[in-house]
């Protein structure tokens, strides 16, 4: 098991009622695995985590990426700045 910090922004933060927490994940957890874990943990997501963008340590990552220990993992909707 390893500890990671999870950050939610915009819709995900509103639905989860939290923007940041630490959690334990099994070794070799990929981004795709984490999406499933978070969908189970936050039933209010209703597939939001499945379709969100994901960044690890402030860079975009994709489903096969294995999350390193101590990572800062952010999940958020497609961006809408400007």
């Amino acid at each position: 098991m390893k500890d990671i910090t999870v950050l939610f922004f915009a819709t995900l933060r509103d639905r989860a009622n939290t923007g940041s927490f630490v959690m334990e994940i099994p070794a070799q957890t990929t981004v795709a695995n984490l999406r499933d874990i978070l969908e189970e943990k936050f039933l209010s997501f209703n597939e939001l985590a499945k379709h969100s963008l994901v960044a690890v340590d402030r860079e975009y990552v994709f489903d096969e990426f294995e999350i390193p220990s101590g990572a800062e993992v952010a999940l958020f909707p497609a961006v809408s700045g400007g």
């Binding site: 915009a10 909707p77 700045g81």
Partner: peptide, 14 residues
């Protein structure tokens, strides 16, 4: 610059 900001810079508006 503005087009790319709107694609990849993590900012959201409500």
């Amino acid at each position: 610059g503005i087009d790319r900001l709107k694609q990849i810079v993590p900012v959201w508006k409500k």
